[in-house]
């Protein structure tokens, strides 16, 4: 009995170890893939690094931070549009998923935070309104391109498009604070 139990424990331990050897996420790409991916993403990463540093150098909850955040999201969109134009559906899917995460966890909640803190009638509030409008137009442009462009027939592209719709009921960054003034 004890022996059977011991064997079972060993088996479980082995299975756990084996599972650890093949994690769900792939290992680092092979060197030639690394090089290809570096070349494909060189200018995108350069833009993201610049905007990231700018975000770090702005105060929390300011329109300036939102502006750089929106620019970072725009650089992702530009990369997606270029890939879509070439008909590179797999790159479109990979980038669209990253973009979706970035909007859901970064841009959208940031917009809400900042909007809750600043007076919509102040110059900063107006600036924020313009940025929010741009962010929405960016998303529209992306969705229209994935719906009409060269990659529209790819099923996985359509799945990532659906994922964008799930960001909010209307598929756009969530509305922030309801506009109070009606006078």
């Amino acid at each position: 009995m004890a022996r059977a139990l011991f064997t079972l424990l060993i088996l479980v331990a082995l299975a756990t170890w084996a599972a650890g050897q093949h994690p769900g996420t792939a290992a680092a790409p092979a060197p030639e893939d690394q090089l290809r991916l570096l070349r494909a993403n060189r200018s995108l990463i350069g833009n993201l690094v610049s905007e990231g540093v700018e975000m770090a150098n702005t105060s929390h909850s300011t329109a300036a931070r939102v502006e750089h955040c929106r620019r970072a999201s725009r650089s992702l969109i530009n990369a997606i549009l270029q890939a879509a134009e070439r008909g590179d559906a797999e790159r479109v899917v990979m980038l669209t998923n990253l973009f979706g995460d970035f909007v859901r966890d970064g841009l959208s909640p940031l917009l809400e935070e900042v909007k809750a803190r600043i007076d919509p009638q102040s110059p900063e509030g107006e600036r924020l309104g313009v940025i929010q409008q741009q962010a929405r137009a960016d998303l529209q442009e992306l969705k229209l391109t994935l719906t009409t462009g060269a990659v529209r027939d790819n099923q996985r592209v359509q799945e990532s498009l659906k994922q964008l719709d799930e960001l909010t009921p209307s598929g756009l960054p969530r509305p922030t604070v309801a506009s109070p003034a009606t006078n």
Partner: peptide, 24 residues
């Protein structure tokens, strides 16, 4: 194919930017 497009460094930089957007 999608896995072949996945570039860990890009993913890390995007996640870094997400964190910087919210860094308070």
């Amino acid at each position: 194919v999608t896995q072949a497009e996945d570039y860990p460094l890009l993913r890390k930089i995007v996640h870094g930017n997400t964190a910087l957007a919210r860094a308070d």
